[in-house]
Design a binder for these strands. Sequence first.
DNA 1: AAACGATTTAACTAAATGGTTAACAAAAGT
DNA 2: ACTTTTGTTAACCATTTAGTTAAATCGTTT
Lengths: 204, 204
Amino acid sequence: MTIKTKNTNTETDILNAAKNVFQRKGMDGARMQEIADEAGINKALLHYYYRSKKLLFEAVFKNAFKLLAPQLNNVLNDDSDIFEKIKNFTDSYISFVLKHPYLPNFIINELNRNPEFAQKLTEDKHFPSFEKFKKQINDCITAKIIRPLTPEQLFINIISLNAFPFIAAPLLKGLADISDKEYNVLIEKRKNEVAEFIINAIKL
Amino acid sequence: MTIKTKNTNTETDILNAAKNVFQRKGMDGARMQEIADEAGINKALLHYYYRSKKLLFEAVFKNAFKLLAPQLNNVLNDDSDIFEKIKNFTDSYISFVLKHPYLPNFIINELNRNPEFAQKLTEDKHFPSFEKFKKQINDCITAKIIRPLTPEQLFINIISLNAFPFIAAPLLKGLADISDKEYNVLIEKRKNEVAEFIINAIKL
DNA sequence: AAACGATTTAACTAAATGGTTAACAAAAGT
DNA sequence: ACTTTTGTTAACCATTTAGTTAAATCGTTT
């Protein structure tokens, strides 16, 4: 068994550098030279590992989505009851994004600029399915545990309340006149408050 | 009084073309040639009216924000009582974005890529102020009309629920397995449902 | 030591891109 | 009428950019 540490390292170094640059600047704003610099290698080696900018970008994007998908599955495919699920999801999602601050914006952004991407994603075997969540919500409504509303709307609301504060951070900070430090405190509190908010909105 | 129709038309033609291209492709993805084509003029004329890509972009961005600001003022600086305000805002905001689908994503996006922009915006005289809303919410809490929560969190929730479904449309369509047509129907329903959702969440 | 893969260097290409120039046309001012 | 200003164009320029190539170096394996 040969030690291919050096080999493997550069490859992930590149991927990591590319992630940083792409997430900061987007596909169009990113420069191959900048990625090479950030990875501590030269531009030729980039093309040695990933033939083109497009392929490198796709690798980064797939990686990013692979990271996000399990988070979404916390709400779509999890066995806990609806209120627990909402609590768990908000807490874990906010923790997750605090660790990967550029990720949601990156994904949403490139998905907007490239809607065929979304199409391709859904065709993937590992793409989260909506069915289980749909059934759970409809069952809760029948059992009069929550107010009647379509699963789709509830899902959109849950994701909106959790994801938007990160995506629109600069705007919201400006509008609500909050400093960076205060904003972080506020986000931290949302781990509980968002769940409460949603539960109050739907509980019967 | 001379008729400067021709003059004025090309200038706004450019601004309009630039708006379309910038909102579709972003600052980095947009090409001056494409803007010129869309405006039906020569590239040199772009630089005649707006000296550089940067200046043209800033003109487009300011215009976009000027369009959005009054919407935000519907929630921040309006005299109606809190429940009416929420209903009015969701209805009018959703109608507004249906007319300008690319606008929220454009603003949030470029604000993320360029956080100094946000700083500059807040310094503008016409930038919405948060004070009135803050007082209103705190008064409602004291009067036991709504549950206790900070005005900032409520504000973030309101904006999130209204704006995110547009910004993340491709992702949400994919996740909840909704066609474009169905999604529009769903958005239309949100004009009422989002307001209900929020009011249920906060009403005592 | 030969062979191999990983990596660097450095020069290069071809296309795209933002921006300029100079000349021309059309209005407006005199 | 003619001069000045404003609007518009085609051709051009300088720079940037993704991507290539070919030769050299270095480390590991055989």
